Amino acid sequence: MTVDLNSRYGLNPAHSEVVEACQIIAPCTALDMGCSNGRNALYLSQLEFNVTAIDANPSAINMLQGIIEEEALTNIKAYVYDINRASLDADYGFISCTVTLMFLDPARVDAVIADMQAHTLAGGYNLIVCAMSTTAYPCPINFPFTLKEGQLRDAYQGWEMVKYNEDIGTMHNGAQLQFATMLARKPS
């Protein structure tokens, strides 16, 4: 990696779970779901993944497209896409969905996860980090959707759990809450 594009453009560093996943996932086709202004997508592109970055926010996508053009990046494409549609049209070796599900329509989350699974290549990976609301740790932020204990693990029955935990974490704003973190590998 020659240049850290995230710091060059004033973006936060890539999510720590994306960085960790890239220790075991070889560059492949990747989807960054809910990419915002592209911190994870840019990181993946610098590691030579072929990245598709999607988000419902047109101004975030415009910002990312500006960086792509400025840097003449050929291995990253950014599109405005409503993840609630659950209608991906390509298959990927790695789908990253960090801190995104909690902003979706709760009635669509099961369909979104099923769509992610259907569009993951055999032997490919899904990374999900999502807020939880549990009896022990009720979520202090009024997200449209939060996971319940074991819900994410249950949704990935039959996949290899490379990493799974439901630990306490801290949001950018300092709020403490429980997160489900999962890196799962689809059977070959």
Rank of each mutant, 00 (worst) to 15 (best):
S7A: 14
G124P: 07
Y156R: 06
A114M: 09
Y156P: 07
Q46I: 00
C97E: 08
P58S: 13
A26T: 11
A30D: 01
R108F: 02
M182P: 03
L42D: 07
Q157S: 13
S7T: 15
S45P: 06
I54S: 04
N6R: 15
L104P: 01
D105Q: 13
V129S: 06
Y81E: 05
T134D: 04
R39Q: 14
A86L: 12
N142Q: 14
N50P: 00
H15G: 01
F145H: 12
T74M: 13
S59G: 02
T120F: 03
I95F: 11
N50G: 05
L73H: 10
I61R: 06
V109F: 11
A180Q: 01
T181M: 08
L152D: 08
D167G: 04
G150V: 02
N57L: 08
A184V: 14
R108I: 00
V19A: 11
V109W: 00
C28Q: 12
A21V: 03
I61G: 07
V162R: 14
N84V: 04
L127W: 07
V162N: 06
A155Y: 02
V99E: 09
M102R: 08
W159Q: 12
V19M: 12
C28T: 15
N84A: 10
Y137H: 15
V51I: 04
G10Q: 06
I83N: 03
N50K: 14
D105I: 10
G174E: 08
E149I: 02
N126F: 03
A107K: 13
V80P: 09
L73D: 02
P13Y: 01
C28D: 13
T29W: 01
I76F: 07
A175N: 11
L104Y: 04
V18I: 15
V99R: 05
R8M: 12
A78W: 04
Y125F: 15
S59T: 13
L47H: 12
K148W: 01
Q157G: 07
L104S: 02
M161T: 04
D105N: 15
L44W: 05
A131Y: 00
N6G: 12
G34N: 10
S96F: 07
T134F: 02
S7E: 15
H15R: 14
C28W: 09
D91V: 14
L121D: 05
I67P: 09
A131D: 00
D82R: 14
L11F: 12
K186C: 11
L64T: 08
C35D: 10
F145D: 07
P187E: 13
N50T: 15
Y81A: 02
G150P: 00
V109H: 03
F143I: 08
